[in-house]
Amino acid sequence: MTESLFFVFAAMAIVSALMVILNRNPIYSAVSLVITLFSLAGIFLLLEAYFLAVVQIIIYAGAIMVLFLFVIMLLNPGKEAKFLSPTNPRILIITLLSIAFIGMIFTLVSGTANYIGEAASSTGDLGTTRNIGLTLFTKYLLPFEIASLLLLVSLVGAVLMTKRNLR
């Protein structure tokens, strides 16, 4: 049951990710990305990361993608004027490099379980909000606070950069 669900989500994610990079229209790309993110949320659920799955949908698929769509519509760039022609040597080079990357990673990753042991038995409450919250506010309190500072800085930065007249 879990395995078949994994394959469904994974296939959805891969296909929509390919749509993201192959679509000419940025709006379609953005919508495809939303689908990818939803599928990933599903995979998170399979991995008992309940809290993160929800956060994935709210923050990524919600907030961040809305920001993307907003900018796309604001700038209205239209379709990309000129896509790389399929005969362009760059495409060939990148494809070859990608295949090499995939091949090496697949080989290296196979048998990882042999090194780190079999999957630990599930307790069923690994990624619950309660557990995440407890860890975040005890062990990771300082990084958590610093992360809030990072967000504040980026907020200020974004406002500053989009201002029309800087003085």
Binding site: A100, F101, I105
Partner: peptide
């Protein structure tokens, strides 16, 4: 970005 990618490929290649 391409040189960055090639660099990471080289690093993985080392382990491979």
């Amino acid at each position: 970005a391409l040189s960055l990618f090639i660099g990471s490929l080289l690093m993985i290649g080392y382990y491979f």
